[in-house]
């Protein structure tokens, strides 16, 4: 299907994008377009103006900043998959980026778009949550930092203001044990349930941080699992608390009950793998 009519402007800089957002309240930013255009084709999204930030230069990068990585919002999934720095310093991000959709999607989709879209079924939001990342949004008043734990507010809702552009994601390095478990029925699909686990101290022993994909209205931290693991529980025991505090949806792919079951299985596998220690991305 063809999207409803809209106006289209290219932004050459973040400042220009912010100015256009302030001037046109019905506008939406267009990055890779791989969440927005499918919605517009189904006419589930009907923006009056698209502000294409694709041409903004200098927003696609990965920088090693000592204790953390800074990733530009326009960095594509494919770039994260290939980046030597990401593979070395945050292998879980590189691996998870390689599990998003299919190669065609990864050639276009961006980490900024993934995060700003705020879909609980998406992979990278949960990774950024598990890594305790910080997001940088720039609006008329300049840039501000938003911790990932405060970023996802509701279903497809984030803390980015209507006149703000997400410019950067900062991720503490995570060289220790990690795991990304994605269960889906067809290769290119979103996760029915997904689990991210990373070792906090970079040596493959706790405290473990665990995040869940598609187990509620937002990506979630599995607080009960983290608490159990920190208290010395093994993978199976900690995983038995995987569904605590979640509200998984029931849909064509799975019932809520099946999702709760999957969460406990996948959390156990994720903890087993993450607890086994450092690992490079295959």
């Amino acid at each position: 299907m063809i999207p409803a009519r809209f106006d289209y402007r290219r932004a050459g800089s973040v400042g220009e994008a912010v100015a256009l957002l302030s001037e046109f309240p019905g506008a939406k930013l267009l990055a890779g377009g791989h969440s927005l255009l499918p919605l517009m084709r189904l006419r589930l999204a009907v923006p009056s103006l698209l502000i294409d930030i694709g041409p903004v230069s200098g927003l696609s990068y990965v920088r090693d900043e000592g204790d953390h990585l800074s990733v530009g919002a326009l960095t594509r999934h494919r770039d994260l998959e290939l980046s030597e720095v990401v593979r070395r310093e945050a292998p879980v991000l590189s691996y998870a980026a390689g599990q998003v959709g299919d190669p065609q999607v990864r050639h276009r989709g961006t980490i900024g778009g993934s995060l700003a879209h705020g879909d609980p079924a998406s992979d990278l939001p949960a990774v950024v949550l598990a890594l305790d990342g910080t997001l940088v949004a720039e609006g008329p008043a300049g840039p501000r930092e938003i911790p990932a734990t405060d970023f996802f507010c509701g279903f497809l809702e984030t803390a980015i203001g209507p006149d703000e552009v997400l410019t950067e994601v900062r991720l503490p390095k995570a060289r220790g044990g990690w795991s990304f478990q994605k269960f889906n029925r067809r290769a290119q699909d979103w996760a029915t349930v997904g689990v991210v686990a990373v070792a906090g101290d970079g040596r493959g022993t706790g405290p473990f941080r665990v995040a869940l994909v598609n187990m509620g209205l937002t990506p979630l931290r599995a607080a009960a699992v983290e608490e159990a693991a920190a208290g010395g529980a093994g993978p199976a025991e900690a995983a038995s608390r995987a569904a605590e505090g979640t509200e998984p949806p029931s849909d064509l792919n799975a019932t809520a009950e099946f999702r709760r079951h999957l969460a406990s299985v996948l959390v156990r596998r994720a903890l087993e793998e993450a607890m086994a220690g450092e690992r490079t991305v295959a």
Partner: peptide
């Protein structure tokens, strides 16, 4: 040089 789904791009993005 990279594969993309041309149904999920606007022609104007091909500039």
């Amino acid at each position: 040089g990279e594969s993309v789904k041309s149904c999920t791009l606007l022609a104007v993005q091909g500039e």
